[in-house]
Design a protein around this nucleic acid. Structure first.
Lengths: 243, 243
DNA sequence: AATATAATACTTGTATACAAGTATACTAGA
DNA sequence: TCTAGTATACTTGTATACAAGTATTATATT
């Protein structure tokens, strides 16, 4: 709650977003943070009242979240699925899959521009760390990987990324906020990993790429998971959406 | 145009579908068949008038098609992207990617039930061929691969499949209708390929799986492409959506 | 007390209305 | 003839209204 206005999603990322997008982003954060527990049944009317909007943007938001697999639209009400450890592992399965695919394509193209772009983003990440800006860091982290994926110009791989991105973003956002408070020293390792990633692209070194990718994910999965679980445990039962 | 009612999508597959789903399915078919050319700008109001429904289901349909990458929602109007050869190749890249991933998981589990299910579907496909039912054949073909994917119980791989499926289904549907008319003999080879696929799963033979998968895709991509292109050429300029 | 039936309070999907914004066309002035 | 400004006909996003269907609850009957 960096914003201290009750919203989990950074409001400055929503400058030009529609009400539907705002609702989906905020709802996603609440679901992934565990504030809205898995199993909860969401009602369109109730959500409309809570967010002070009509049912139209709410319906839009629910459709989006359903396509991301964090809720399930049933005949009566939307059932929250959320992110268990299983789902988080699965997301990283997919990321590993697509980033490996992308790397195979990248070694075949000119990477000068890409390297420059990635270096810039890395600098941004360092600044974000320096000023303890978890949100900005998360943004740049996601952008880093998206930039790599975009470089190969594959519309259907990009489609997968776009489907995965919102959930990834929320997850990373929450993880990073936590870590900025509790495990600040982690970030030097994350930066190191991203530097390795750039180097792997530069030298077209498959093994190095695979290593940095796995390290990166293991890092997030292993270490962060713990924090994650405790955070979810903490939030258990604090907020009740339904009654 | 098996239905001879002006609709391309099989109406019996829409028994319990909402108006939004109906519109998205029909629009998808028209886009992929080339009846609506790429570059066309779709207007919500015009579509609502054409389909004799309100804007609500139309908006829903456009959101779906946008998430499938066959249209692009812009500030004013939805621009049709369609399926060029590039996109079709990309779709098969992704299918190859996920089906390979799935196979790695499958070899680790008990496949008895799956094999039985696949055999049943294969029988269905044979019957569909016997009675020259292109739509039914397409349905079973898609179901065959979906069944394999579902077997590993991976929600995010399934998510990718679900995102890809409608476009795949439309594409296969159109291809098969064409082939039933013009290249009936192809189907013995398709059946053969699927039998190989089942065998690969049964014997957990990676190479065989890879072979049957590639053959299957090459078949569709190489041979069907030609038909495809000619079909698209044929439909060029026949129907004008905008004027 | 248990069960069948009816009333109610929900639900979703669709239609319609409206506000705010944007492109197009048209007119007025030089 | 060309440009500036204005009117108009679009566009999207949101709110609201309504119909049809489904749980739930209460009531009546045995």
């Amino acid at each position: 709650m960096t914003e201290s206005n009750g919203f989990l999603y950074p409001s400055k990322w929503l400058s030009k977003a529609s009400a539907g997008d705002r609702v989906s982003c905020e709802l996603r954060m609440r679901i992934i943070s565990g504030e809205i527990e898995s199993g909860t049944i969401l009602s369109e009317n109730k959500l409309a009242a809570d967010f002070a909007v009509s049912r139209s943007p709410i319906r839009e938001a629910l459709k989006i979240l359903a396509s991301e697999n964090i809720i399930r639209l049933e005949r009566m009400g939307a059932v929250v699925i959320g992110l268990s450890e299983k789902e988080i592992e699965e997301i990283y399965d997919v990321r590993l899959l697509i980033e490996s695919f992308v790397f195979e394509r990248i070694v075949k193209i000119d990477t000068n521009e890409l390297i420059k772009e990635l270096s810039k983003i890395l600098e941004m990440m360092k600044v974000a760390i320096k000023y303890s800006d978890a949100d900005e860091f998360s943004y740049q982290d996601v952008l880093f990987h998206e930039t790599i994926i975009r470089a190969v110009n594959h519309s259907y791989i990009l489609m997968i990324w776009n489907n995965l991105k919102p959930v990834m973003e929320s997850f990373i956002l929450l993880s990073m906020r936590k870590r900025f408070k509790e495990k600040y020293e982690d970030f030097t390792r994350i930066i190191k990993n991203h530097e390795l990633y750039i180097e792997a692209i530069q030298t077209k070194d498959r093994d190095l790429m695979s290593k940095s990718l796995h390290d990166n994910f293991d890092d997030v999965q292993g270490k962060v998971e713990d924090l994650w679980i405790s955070q979810r445990m903490l939030s258990k039962g604090v907020v009740q959406q339904n009654d």
